[in-house]
Design a binder for these strands. Structure first.
Length: 582
RNA sequence: GGACCCGUAGCUCAGCUGGAUAGAGCGUUGCCCUCCGAAGGCAAAGGUCGCGCGUUCGAAUCGCGCCGGGUCCGCCA
């Protein structure tokens, strides 16, 4: 018993088309698809096989469509197959064949839609915010998109590792260490003034937020007066580590509030200490991709202090990048890019040939060079890096944007957003947009209990379904129910939507687009609400019919299947199904 | 100057990797809902898919060139 009916029908189409044209090249077959029809008048499914095969077969697409239709029609499960339009074949399934999927859903439960084991590891890295403070709203979209994408790819049958890269090696965490020390002096009651202290801090007084006050206190509690008059060299490493550990705790709490969890946290510092950077660069060095050179200044926008400098460069242009990229600064120390190369080399050494990074839009200019580096590292082997960019989110309230700039002092933390609308709304709404498009997050809509709040609408559908199931009480042998009475247009529309779920999982995972799941659930909820509403106009369509146990059982099976698919989809999005609306 | 993302209904956005008559919600307009499943329901109006070439049986979708918005551009992370 197969789950993905579209994949099954595609196999049938392929079998028949290869009987008609045994010589059809594999790359042509690969383009053949079986898709849901937009219009119910076109049947349940349509295939483009005749259109795709027309040119290589040297025949008119309509003729092929006619022949293919004839070949498909006798198949068990197909009620009708007919040529249409420029050369489509529209397929109408036997209702009985369609309905047979309901027990499949009931038996599979929330696992319905789970793809077959692809026996392939995929690493999904996201958030990776610097451990210098709590997460802010800007991190939120990447966290949600990355998490849902990882769930989605796992659902499609891949072995997914969710990874967070801790940038605990650069100048920023040193700045954090200095501020921790400053807060420590304060905690001990010493007259350390921010202005005076800032002057003595290399890189200025970043991360001065109040959230570091308790860190200073904890540091004081741990080390007492030990570091009061000590030189920086004595305390900096300790303060940095202490600060990073505390910030990671903070970040993990923020992530937990958003229900985002990782399989692994990788430390940049640990990688550097273990010699990973030298190891990564050596791979490129051995491939002859590292050289000394001088870069041209960017045209049209030459920095004031520009002067030509010789640097160690990676030949990124050999792999599709626009210019070669520095891996070492002019003083010989490594660039951040060098560490990133090392980090991806490390992932590859851990057996990942498929990697996905979720980044903010401000890193868009970084994509080509990182992909170039991965290709270079792979050498003759195959490895691939996909980058999902998340564009900016504008938070709106009462029709006006909520200011979020740090400078304006209204720096909105992720926690504020979650407290305002709850993790479910944050997650679902963030996923109602394609990640590479800018979006507006409307705080008013996010808490509204109407159809324009998608998370409410979907959860309400689930709650209604559960309410029916509670009212129905224990119904035994649901998976064996006679469902042949399900014939109303609204019922069949709902079933057609339900059987699309495995296909959505597959296509959305392949496209790395979790938002398709959110849209699917929204549509599914719409179909279910429509059926519910039909029962208001026509009592005969209500789910529970005291006088008609057979029909009732069939409908309860359908409602149960609907609840299962909604739960299955919400699980991918990381949104909780609710039993009742309160 | 260059790279990347976006441009679809009044607004916010989908459009399933080139398919059939371009969709949804909000908003607008009209009708329905005193109770029995209404924190609502049904329906209508609303589009030169930014513009122009090109590729082909076919383009919102692919290519090129413009226009507009955004992100970014040697040693920052």
């Amino acid at each position: 018993m197969t789950e993905n009916l579209f994949a099954e029908l595609r196999r049938w189409v392929l079998e028949e088309i290869l009987i008609l044209f045994p010589e059809l090249p594999a790359e042509v077959c690969a383009k053949i698809e079986v898709t849901p029809t937009r219009d119910a008048a076109h049947g349940d499914m349509a295939t483009n096989a005749a259109l795709v095969a027309a040119k290589p077969a040297g025949k008119n697409p309509r003729d092929i469509a006619a022949a293919l239709s004839q070949a498909l029609t006798p198949r068990t499960g197909i009620a009708k197959a007919e040529p249409a339009g420029p050369g489509f074949v529209n397929i109408t399934l036997d209702a009985e064949f369609l309905l047979r999927q309901i027990p499949v859903m009931l038996t599979a439960g929330e696992a319905y839609g789970q793809g077959a084991d692809k026996a392939e590891k995929i690493n999904v890295e996201y958030v990776s915010a610097n451990p210098t403070g709590p997460l802010h709203v800007g991190h939120c979209r990447g966290a949600v998109v990355g998490d849902a994408l990882a769930n989605l790819i796992a659902k499609a049958g891949y072995h997914v590792t969710k990874e967070y890269y801790i940038n605990d090696a650069g100048a920023q965490v040193l700045a954090l260490g200095r501020v921790v020390y400053f807060r420590y002096l304060q905690a001990l009651g010493l007259p350390a003034k921010a202005e005076a202290y800032a002057g003595s801090v290399a890189g200025g007084m970043q991360y001065g937020g109040a959230y570091l006050e308790p860190v200073g206190e904890a540091f004081a509690a741990e080390y007492g007066g030990k570091f009061i008059d000590a030189p920086e060299a004595d305390w900096l490493a300790t303060a940095r580590q202490f600060g990073v550990a505390k910030m990671l705790e903070l970040i993990r709490e923020d992530l937990a509030a958003l229900r985002v969890y990782f399989d692994i946290f990788s430390s940049e510092d640990a990688l550097v200490q273990a010699g990973g950077v030298a190891r990564g660069l050596a791979i490129l060095e051995n491939a002859g991709l590292i050289y000394q050179g001088v870069l041209e200044p960017p045209k049209g926008k030459t920095p004031e202090d520009w002067e030509p400098r010789e640097q160690t460069l990676f030949r990124a242009t050999a792999f599709g990048d626009d210019v070669d990229r520095p891996v070492q600064k002019s003083d010989g120390s490594n660039t951040y890019f060098a560490n990133d190369i090392a980090y991806h080399a490390d992932k590859m050494a851990r057996g990942f040939t498929q990697m996905i990074d979720v980044w903010g839009a401000d890193h868009g200019g970084y994509v080509k060079r990182m992909q170039a580096a991965v290709k270079a590292l792979a050498g003759n082997t195959s490895a691939n890096l996909d980058v999902v960019l998340c564009q900016i989110v504008r938070v709106m309230k009462d029709g006006a944007p909520v200011r979020m700039s740090k400078r304006a002092g209204t720096f909105v933390e992720l926690r504020d957003l979650i407290d305002e609308v709850g993790p479910d709304a944050v997650r679902f709404i963030m996923l109602m947009r394609k990640s590479d498009a800018q979006m507006e997050f409307d705080l008013n809509a996010a808490v509204a209990q109407t159809r324009d709040n998608p998370v409410f609408y979907v959860q309400y559908a689930h709650a209604r379904a559960r309410s029916v199931l509670r009212a129905a009480g224990e119904v035994s042998g649901l998976a064996d129910a006679d469902v042949s009475s399900l014939q109303a247009p609204e019922e069949l529309a709902l079933i057609r939507k339900l059987i699309a779920w495995p296909r959505i999982v597959e296509t959305a995972a392949q496209a790395r687009e979790p938002h398709r799941v959110a849209f699917f659930l929204y549509e599914l909820a719409g179909d279910f609400h429509a059926l519910w509403n039909a029962g208001r106009d026509d009592a005969a369509l209500r789910f529970l019919q005291a006088e008609r146990p057979v029909e009732t059982k069939a409908r309860v099976a359908l409602v149960s299947a609907t609840a299962i698919v909604i739960r299955s989809g919400l699980a991918v999005l990381g949104v909780q199904p609710v039993e009742e609306m309160r």
